[in-house]
Nucleic acid binder design. Structure first.
Length: 576
RNA sequence: CGGGAUGUAGCUCAGCCUGGUAGAGCACUACGUUCGGGACGUAGGAGUCGGAGGUUCAAAUCCUCUCAUCCCGACCA
């Protein structure tokens, strides 16, 4: 491609709307343009990278034996009513009516459509297992789209659905997909981790997310630094109970005035006690009782997902209202404590390991010090209630956890029979009896991957594409071609020779100053750059530089093509 | 949905407080000079000041409503 034929401009100034680096660079390099909140146009350069991602996914899905389909973006409401998600999904589901006032949705996902296809087409266990996938546009009307294509409302997703006659077969299919995902993300040159995950609203049993490690990621994940390779979403990572037993009480219970000190931080500063020696109580709505109390060490955070799974707690988990708190304790949040509480009480393992701790007195402007389980309060029910923190022992058994940020680019689930049961998708087994099919579902955020790759690969000058995702492999930059016919001719010659060998090459034939061309080439992040100048040609050389390199190399002019070719062959093998 | 902020040229923003001829830089067009790290000069094109209503002799500026966008939170995967 000739740069002079590409009409989208790069920009020096960072657009005000962009916050994260990938969004800034994608706008500045002209890869995307915003049309509405969370809705973007992909320009020719950006689309090339997007297609690279899609192609890798397609190749690995095909290799894993999946069959590509293309389902409609617009789906009839009936299917969603049948699965129950018409009611469940909420305002994130974009609903619309056709001219006959019939209800439709713009698909945020395709479980219903694929299950409908499966129940019509699949009649016998002999047709199983089968895995259908598509690469297609989805729409989720996010409350708050942000970070460009990282959390857009309209986005491209690869979604796959597998059908099996038994749970064992589902497990096998799941394992095959897991391997395929590892291959894909490795080929894309991403630093990623498969992590254990919650199944969320999609439902099902086993589930793993593929997280690209990046500080700007929206997910917190707990990764072991030890040889056990443990990694889980923070929501799910268990906090192991402390190994040492609780110290014996050593001081007396005492009520102290803590006027206007409500937060753990305020109380611990005021009483000069470390936050680790304090205890906090959170009240949530219950099923058997109005409220249920949860006790945590002062410096720990409540994990909603874990708490929600405890008996007696309302789903979805909801914090008690100010009225409920007052009714249950006669007090207000900020001064709650376990002493004298009448509602059911769960205590986190770490909270239970405390002795002589500080907590609220259930009386406004007062706290208790020297509180001890067993002595001052009945022993509560122990539970894992908190988010793990840096340094916690790894549940994998070897090493310690580090909390890191990740961008979720893939998520695989063993759905089981949730949809196949609701929509009566069954096949006949070898004895002629109908069996409900077991399903797996496997998603990849295609558009998001482009942003994730940039988050992980950039510098002050711009994008540094992993080779497999670069919109072009080589950029040829003639300097002052307007003045020098030799420069023009040699650049043209090299460009055509590269094209002829199938290398994706961009010729910067714009009538621009050298500084502009260098800056744009770096912003756009093309891995290999060849500069052709009068100065170099006089010496019989061209100049080569890798985007990630610090210095230039001078190559003899006639070696440019063969050396580039061997370089690219090499990097193809190492995928870098 | 709660809290905060912003809408002025394609982009980044000034002007608003204290009402009185709509501005700058980048980008764009033409010409000239320049040409290895985002050049310079001259000339030029480009704006219903988000929209509606109100106050006023006069509104980008003050008031009311509305729409949109961004940030924080809750929400979602």
């Amino acid at each position: 491609m000739r740069w002079s034929r590409y009409p989208i401009q790069t920009v020096k100034e960072t657009p005000a709307e962009a916050e994260v680096i990938s969004h800034k660079l994608m706008l500045r390099a002209g890869l995307i343009r915003r049309l509405a909140a969370g809705i973007y146009t992909w320009t020719p350069f950006g689309l090339r990278s997007l297609r690279k991602v899609e192609q890798i996914i397609r190749e690995e899905m095909d290799r894993a034996g999946a069959l590509e389909v293309l389902m409609p973006a617009v789906q009839p409401a009936e299917l969603w009513q049948e699965s129950g998600r018409w009611e469940q999904y909420g305002p994130e589901l974009l609903r619309l009516k056709d001219r006959h006032q019939r209800d439709f949705v713009i698909g945020p996902t395709h479980e219903e459509v694929i299950t409908d296809l499966a129940r019509r087409e699949l009649k016998s266990y002999r047709q199983l297992p089968v895995n259908f996938y598509q690469i297609q546009v989805k729409f989720r009307d996010e409350i708050r789209p942000r970070f460009g294509v990282m959390r857009g409302r309209e986005f491209i997703m690869k979604d796959a659905y597998s059908f099996h006659a038994s749970p064992e077969c589902l497990q096998q299919g799941y394992d095959i997909m897991r391997e395929a995902y590892v291959r894909m993300f490795t080929r894309m040159g991403l630093e990623f981790r498969p992590v254990k995950a919650d199944t969320g609203s999609i439902g099902g049993t086993a589930s793993e997310e593929f997280q690209v490690l990046a500080d700007s990621g929206e997910d917190a994940i707990a990764v072991s630094d030890g040889p056990d390779n443990y990694a889980a979403n923070l929501e799910l990572a268990p906090a192991l109970p402390p190994t040492q037993s609780r110290p014996a009480p050593s001081i007396a219970l005492k009520k102290v005035a803590t006027p206007n000190r409500k937060t753990i931080q305020e109380v611990s500063e005021y009483l000069k006690v470390p936050a680790q020696q304090t205890l906090k109580i959170l009240l949530v709505q219950g099923t058997e009782t109005r409220v249920v109390a949860l006790a945590l060490r002062g410096d720990h955070e409540l994990n909603l997902i874990k708490a929600q799974k405890l008996p007696g707690i309302a789903q979805p988990i909801t914090l008690a209202t100010a009225e409920q708190i007052s009714e249950a304790t006669g007090c207000e949040s900020g001064y709650l404590g376990p002493v004298g509480l009448t509602c059911p009480l769960y205590a986190d393992h770490a909270a239970l390991a405390l002795a002589d701790f500080v907590c609220g007195a259930n009386e406004i402007d007062h706290h208790l010090t020297g509180v001890n389980w067993g002595r001052d309060v009945a022993e509560p029910t122990p539970a894992d209630l908190r988010n793990v923190v840096d340094g916690d022992p790894s549940p994998g058994g070897a090493g310690h956890l580090r909390v890191r940020r990740g961008i979720e680019v893939g998520h695989i689930f063993q759905l089981g029979c949730k949809y196949s049961e609701a929509m009566q998708a069954s096949v006949l087994d070898d004895s002629g009896k109908p069996v409900t099919m077991f399903m797996g579902c496997y998603g990849i955020g295609v558009t998001r991957i482009v942003a994730a790759a940039i988050e992980q690969n950039h510098d002050a000058a711009g994008i540094i594409w992993p080779r497999a995702l670069a919109p072009f492999t080589v950029v040829v930059v003639p300097l002052n071609a307007g003045k020098s016919a030799a420069v023009r001719d040699q650049a043209e010659k090299l460009y055509q020779a590269l094209e002829a060998t199938g290398i994706e090459v961009l010729l910067d034939d714009r009538d621009a100053r050298p500084g502009v061309k260098f800056a744009d080439a770096e912003l756009l992040g093309i891995p290999h750059r060849v500069v052709i100048s009068e100065r170099g040609l006089d010496a019989g050389t061209i100049e080569y530089r890798h985007r990630a390199a610090e210095t230039n190399e001078n190559w003899p002019l006639d070696e440019a093509l063969p050396r580039l070719q061997s370089l690219l062959n090499q990097s193809e093998k190492t995928s870098s």
